[in-house]
Design a protein around this nucleic acid. Structure first.
Length: 346
DNA sequence: AGAATTTGACCGGC
DNA sequence: GCCGGTCAAATTCT
């Protein structure tokens, strides 16, 4: 897959860019008397993760190709070349019957931090409608894990799911694991339903909510800067080798610098890694820039790897969650060949 | 009343 | 047998 190659390049670039951004942020924090050593540690960790991921991606180039071959049916699977648990060829026979067997869906994780800013907290919202279907106490975890699936699971056969778990170490961080891509058409992005994260927050954190009813447009970027800070963190290497985190440093830059920084990222093909979903603060939600994943192959259409974890950030742009199955892989190409201002695209 | 959430039971993987 | 993930009936919310 040629596109996969481009995708890898950009992903590696993303990692390096991210590392740089976080390094800048760390620099900023170091010169600030108010920041805590804890923050420094975390930033440092993130920098290391970024570089780890970049290196990992380099090493994984070959194996990802192998993986791609192993899953021929996964048309341009935007999966992270980094598979995860298990070796690349270790695909189980995926059953599509709705059994209780674990679904072999591509997965990726996000870490979303909730911040209080001027009394307004930001929470996670990814623009999709989720319905909680379970909660479990996880061994070794202080907080229970919540399970959500797409609201339109039955009506639109959308098998996207996600798990939300509050971090033990930092209660302000919610680790979100997405599985499967949305195949539903949640046309009413402007009126997104309540989000699980918010529920989490509502019930567990007593955070305040700030509603935004905006389309995922550029305004979002502005609101993003003003009202929230979201953080995606790299997970363990094997989980998030293909992660992209929104530049942490961005909030520490001055207004224009932020936008500049952001747009720079967007322009630098990172955009391709953004999924269309976005903030959709609309509901109970507050604004939150979710890093969302998406554009994975639809569960029903392709057998998917169980261990493709991708972290992608999203910007939203499209009303159609199902932008393109190749969205991530071909994002570089997409940028070049598919102007977002294409009539009818939005 | 319908939708969403809660929660104990069930199932499969390890 | 344990654990994580899902189901589905009961409950709560809108």
């Amino acid at each position: 897959m040629g596109s996969a190659c481009n995708w890898e390049k950009s992903t590696i670039a993303n990692e390096l860019i991210q590392g740089m951004e976080v390094a800048r942020q760390l620099k900023f924090h170091l010169s600030s008397s108010t920041s805590s050593p804890d923050t420094h540690q975390r930033l440092l960790q993130r920098i290391l993760s970024s570089y780890d991921n970049a290196l990992l991606l380099l090493n994984w180039s070959e194996s990802s190709a192998v993986q791609a071959q192993a899953v021929p049916a996964m048309v341009s699977l935007p999966q992270s070349p980094i598979s995860t648990e298990g070796s690349p060829g270790e695909f189980k026979d995926h059953h599509q019957d709705v059994s209780k067997k674990r679904k072999a869906l591509p997965t990726w994780k996000d870490h979303v931090r909730i911040y209080f800013e001027n009394g307004v907290e930001s929470s996670a919202e990814d623009g999709y409608s989720w319905r909680k279907y379970g909660q479990k106490d996880i061994l070794g975890a202080t907080h229970p894990r919540s399970y959500y699936r797409c609201t339109y699971r039955n009506t639109q056969m959308c098998y996207a799911t996600k798990q939300v778990q509050r971090s033990d170490n930092d209660p302000t961080i919610f680790e979100i694991t997405y599985k499967g891509k949305h195949t539903c058409l949640q046309a009413n992005n402007s009126v997104p339903p309540a989000t699980p994260e918010n529920q989490e927050l509502k019930h567990e954190s007593h955070y305040h909510y700030h509603h935004h009813n905006q389309e995922p447009t550029n305004d979002v970027l502005i609101n993003f800067r003003e009202n929230l800070r979201v953080e995606t963190e790299d997970l363990h290497k094997k989980e998030a080798s293909d992660s992209f985190s929104f530049p942490q440093g961005i909030e520490n830059l001055t207004g224009e610098a932020q936008l500049s920084s952001f747009s720079q990222l967007v322009n630098e093909n990172v955009m391709g890694n953004f999924s269309p979903s976005f903030i959709s603060p609309a509901t109970s939600g507050s604004s939150y820039f979710s890093v969302s994943p998406y554009q994975m192959n639809s569960f029903g259409q392709f057998p998917e790897s169980d261990h493709n974890e991708i972290i992608s950030a999203n910007t939203s742009t499209s009303n159609s969650p199902i932008l393109d199955l190749d969205f991530q892989i071909d994002h570089a190409d997409l940028d070049l060949k598919f102007p977002f201002d294409t009539p009818g695209f939005f």
